[in-house]
Simulated scan of single mutants.
Amino acid sequence: MAGKSLLRPDLIVAGPVSELSFEWLKQRHVAGLILDLDDTLLALGEQIVNTKVMDWVARARLEFNLWIVSNNPNRPFIESIALSLSLPYVNRAAKPSRRALRRVLEEMQLLPEQVAIVGDRLLTDVLAGNRLGLVTVLVEPPGPSRILRGRLLRAVERLVFPDVLIRPTGNPSVGRS
């Protein structure tokens, strides 16, 4: 990890998780995906995963070992979403802590470099993944957040880390090789 900024994702997708290319992941020998929930699979404030994301998860399940890892403390809510997607989950993950991610890696029986963490936040998902040596992917929320908190946190990240979050016009994703 020498030379890699802890807050720089390996890939920035200029769109929601449903725009994430399986080919890009396979080229990096990714076999497992750790997926954030709030504002990654589900817009904050929503109760149901949209159809595009559900379809993407169904296709991803055929290619990768999938887990939901969320900081959200509402276990019944996380469990209902995880059940609707037929995915195992961890809630109260406390990202950027690596404890929950290590547990999921053990369950997946994969090495960190074989797993990508996909999320919407630099200071939780990307930081936690980079600290553990995972492939890190930053995505946009799957829809507008109903909760002001998500928009505010993302605005602060864009102000503090503008060089990481700027996307060139016309390029659907930016990543390091």
Rank of each mutant, 00 (worst) to 15 (best):
M54Y: 12
A100R: 03
L33W: 05
W67R: 15
E106T: 08
L85I: 07
G119V: 10
Q114E: 15
S84I: 10
E23M: 15
V17D: 06
L62V: 01
A93W: 09
A14G: 14
K26A: 06
L42M: 00
E113S: 09
T51Y: 04
Y89G: 02
V30N: 03
E63P: 05
T124R: 09
L66A: 04
E106M: 14
A94G: 06
A116I: 13
K95N: 15
L33F: 12
V115H: 08
Q27W: 03
V104L: 03
R99D: 14
S21L: 05
P76W: 13
T40D: 00
R99G: 10
K52T: 15
L35S: 04
I34C: 07
I68N: 15
L83Q: 11
K52E: 09
N50W: 07
F22N: 11
I81R: 06
A116W: 10
A14I: 14
L42W: 07
N65Y: 04
V13A: 12
V118K: 04
P96R: 08
M54C: 08
E23A: 13
Q114D: 02
A58D: 10
A58W: 07
R102G: 15
P16L: 00
L33E: 01
L42V: 01
E23R: 15
R121L: 06
Q109M: 10
G45H: 11
E107Y: 00
L41P: 00
A93P: 11
T40L: 01
T124N: 08
L25N: 08
E19F: 11
R102A: 03
E79A: 05
V57Q: 02
L83D: 05
L110D: 13
S21G: 07
R75S: 08
S70V: 03
P16N: 09
G15Q: 14
S70P: 10
L20H: 02
I78N: 04
Q47R: 07
V118W: 01
Q114W: 05
D55E: 15
S84T: 00
L66I: 01
